[in-house]
């Protein structure tokens, strides 16, 4: 076949695929929303058995209605965020390596950049903070770690770039992004349930349960339902409680 024809077909199909990824019928959004509706109850049951944790009734309900129904609008809202940058996309501690410097301090590096994208920084941080640590560690240090990140970011950006950026607004996005983290957990849950006899099943189940518990506790603390309703209702600002 003529190379030019092949290249044109490839270009056209890529354009089509790209349009879908960023358009209102984005298949990833549709899949994430549908899977959340279908499997969140099973996942919450597993979290209850494993971690003896369950979210409030309002959040149980919102996880099958408000959040999946508002998924695409929420992503559109994220797209207008002033916090956009290139994110790693899967900055869990498993994708981080550490070098001990001469003064004994640690320097971190990142690998596995397959999920890199231009996205709001809070999307990265919700996944990195809620899905790297145990529930106890997250409860004790999660807020402080996020504050360390924010203070370092503001310092590195300098006064000009940091002008107009507010921690309270960042937290609103952070609460929203936890909803995406929950949907990623649902997909991970489906994946591990395919082979419950695998040697590493208990470990993977533990990670998913810890991650979802951390995400849901953060969502409740930051009033993610309120933030989502404000977005769905076209509200300019959603009242979000400060961390800590």
């Amino acid at each position: 076949m003529n190379t030019r024809v092949v290249r044109t077909c490839t270009w056209l199909t890529c354009k089509w695929q790209n349009k879908l990824l960023t358009g209102p019928d984005n298949p990833i959004c549709l899949i994430a929303a549908l899977k959340m509706k279908m499997n969140i109850k099973k996942l919450l049951k597993m979290v209850k058995e494993q971690n003896n944790y369950e979210p409030s009734d309002a959040y149980k309900k919102a996880l099958t209605t408000t959040f999946p129904d508002g998924f695409f609008k929420m992503l559109q809202w994220c797209n207008t965020s002033p916090y956009k940058t290139v994110v790693h996309g899967d900055a869990r501690i498993d994708n981080v390596f550490f070098k001990t410097l001469e003064d004994g301090s640690l320097e971190a590096g990142l690998f596995d950049w397959a999920q890199a994208m231009v996205a709001p920084a809070f999307y990265e941080m919700s996944w990195a903070v809620s899905h790297s640590f145990t529930t106890k560690f997250h409860e004790e240090h999660g807020d402080d770690l996020l504050r360390i990140y924010w203070d370092s970011l503001m310092q590195l950006l300098g006064p000009q770039k940091a002008s107009g950026l507010e921690y309270s607004e960042f937290l609103k996005g952070y609460a929203m992004a936890e909803c995406v983290s929950v949907s990623k957990c649902v997909i991970a849950f489906e994946s591990i349930q395919k082979d419950t006899k695998a040697d590493d099943y208990p470990h993977k189940r533990g990670l998913v349960c810890n991650g979802i518990e951390n995400s849901l506790k953060t969502m409740e603390k930051l009033d993610a339902i309120g933030a989502m309703e404000a977005i769905l209702g076209g509200g300019a600002t959603a009242k979000v409680a400060p961390l800590g």
Partner: peptide
């Protein structure tokens, strides 16, 4: 390690 991870992400962003 967690603090170093946060600083690393702040640098990238």
């Amino acid at each position: 390690q967690a603090k170093a991870q946060m600083l690393c992400l702040a640098k990238v962003h």
